[in-house]
Amino acid sequence: MRKLLLLACLLSVSLVKVHAQVSGEMVKEILVKDWERAKAYTNEYLNSMPADKYGAYAVDSIKRSFAQQMLHLAAGTFGLSASGTGEARKYVGFNMEQSKGAQSKDSVVYYVNEAYDFTISGIKNMDAAKLSEHVKRGNLDETRLSWLMKSFEHQTHHRGQCTIYIRLQGIRPPNEKLF
Rank of each mutant, 00 (worst) to 15 (best):
M1Y: 06
M1T: 03
R2Y: 04
K3Q: 15
L7N: 06
S12C: 06
V13K: 10
K17P: 09
A20I: 03
V22F: 12
V22S: 13
M26L: 14
K28T: 02
I30K: 10
K33W: 13
W35K: 07
E36I: 04
N43W: 01
D52L: 03
K53Y: 11
Y54W: 03
A56V: 15
Y57H: 15
D60Q: 15
S61W: 12
R64W: 14
F66K: 08
Q68M: 06
Q69D: 11
M70V: 05
M70H: 05
L73M: 12
A74I: 05
A75N: 06
G76A: 05
T77G: 03
F78R: 09
L80G: 06
T85L: 06
A88V: 12
V92E: 13
M96W: 14
Q98D: 15
S99W: 09
G101R: 04
S104D: 02
K105C: 00
K105I: 02
Y110W: 06
T119F: 00
S121L: 04
I123N: 10
I123S: 03
M126E: 08
M126D: 02
A128F: 10
A129G: 12
K130A: 12
E133Y: 05
R137I: 11
G138R: 07
N139I: 14
L140N: 10
L140Y: 07
T143Y: 03
K150W: 09
K150Q: 11
S151R: 01
F152K: 13
R159E: 00
G160V: 01
C162T: 05
I171R: 02
I171N: 04
P174V: 12
